[in-house]
Write a protein that binds this DNA or RNA. Structure first.
Lengths: 192, 192
DNA sequence: AAACAAAACTAACGATTGTTAGTTTTGTTT
DNA sequence: AAACAAAACTAACAATCGTTAGTTTTGTTT
């Protein structure tokens, strides 16, 4: 069966992400993961190098998704409001498409090994920096209310980061509706 | 030394909370905990019954703090805005006074044993229900903007729950200032 | 049918986990 | 000084952890 090269690996990683989301990285054993896939734990090592590798793949994958998007939006010559809307939209999209990966990133990034953790934190800091710049520019241009920059940033990101929790509970998750509602709640509270 | 009855136990629990906050429940061994206290792991069992007991104590303690407060505020005959302000204030206070316990509750509640988990979730659901009622009443009385109730609730609670993350990073955490800022961001975006 | 590689298996390893039993130290009370 | 209890200790247990080595099964390619 040498036709599926990385297919099985992806299957393992997605199953792992689902389990990690439910119980946390450390509470999921390789035997648990293997059982969910209908194989023995040792068979996993035909496809992956270590448990750590799985975690690294999951978290850096979704972290890079965020980085990629904001790197594209940041330099555009559009209003602050438009940029923030694009960011909210991106969070919603990733929440919908990569729920398990996102949950895993939020909850288990501190269990990454040293190299991966450093890379993750670098990406995260760069992301926060860009959002901070956008908010700051909006306040400077008098497009946003001049509340404390840091706390506004924190509040915005907190809500967006934990969106997946709310998504899991409400199955009637309408992408267009939630986009409008979040814009109203998060941005109308900030926009003059 | 039979004078300190529960003093040492509290010390253990607070140290555990600090470690759990940093590394997560499952990543902290009883030997790690003991070492932080300068004793051997087996000595812990002179004071506590199990690792689970520690987690249960931490989480239910802070959960009951929230319950107690909202049970007191909920039936008061004051405006919705005043109630929400009281809730925000309480979250700030607990964030400041019980940072480690709160972080532990947010991150490790799913590692509680069956009985404690059920009790925690009951308390949490009751809390959310009361906040939902308060928001609903405010919208009904036309005191709040009529955005989607569930998503407003989610956004509010997300920010408040993860306040401790922001607090850890910013050491210039002025209680009075943050109270005002959060009221502006969270409530002014909602209040007409 | 022979050859081959992917992917499963069995069996086991050394390390670590939470916890228990039994003993000694420590400090207070009589 | 004798008695006592709190709280430390040593030593070990059964279970589980991630992982490795070596082998067999499976399915495709020649």
């Amino acid at each position: 069966m040498p036709f599926m090269k990385t297919e099985r690996k992806k299957e393992i990683i997605h199953t792992a992400a689902r389990l990690f989301k439910e119980k946390g990285y450390n509470a999921v054993s390789m035997r648990d993961l293997a059982e969910s896939l209908g194989i023995k734990a040792s068979s996993l090592y035909n496809h992956i190098a270590s448990k750590q590798e799985i975690l690294g793949y999951i978290i850096l994958d979704v972290a890079e998704n965020f980085t990629e998007h904001i790197t594209r939006v940041f330099p555009q010559e559009i209003s602050t409001t438009k940029k923030l809307e694009a960011i909210v939209e991106n969070h919603i999209e990733i929440t919908l498409k990569k729920t398990d990966f996102l949950a895993c990133m939020n909850n288990d990034w501190m269990h990454l090994d040293k190299a991966n953790k450093q890379q993750y934190l670098t990406l995260r800091n760069a992301y926060e920096f860009k959002v901070r710049e956008i908010l700051g520019e909006g306040m400077k241009q008098n497009e946003l209310k001049s509340t404390d920059l840091e706390i506004t940033l924190f509040s915005l990101l907190s809500t967006l980061r934990t969106l997946y929790l709310w998504y899991s509970k409400n199955n009637n998750f309408n992408e267009e509706k939630i986009k409008q509602d979040l814009r109203q709640i998060l941005l109308s509270g900030v926009i003059k």
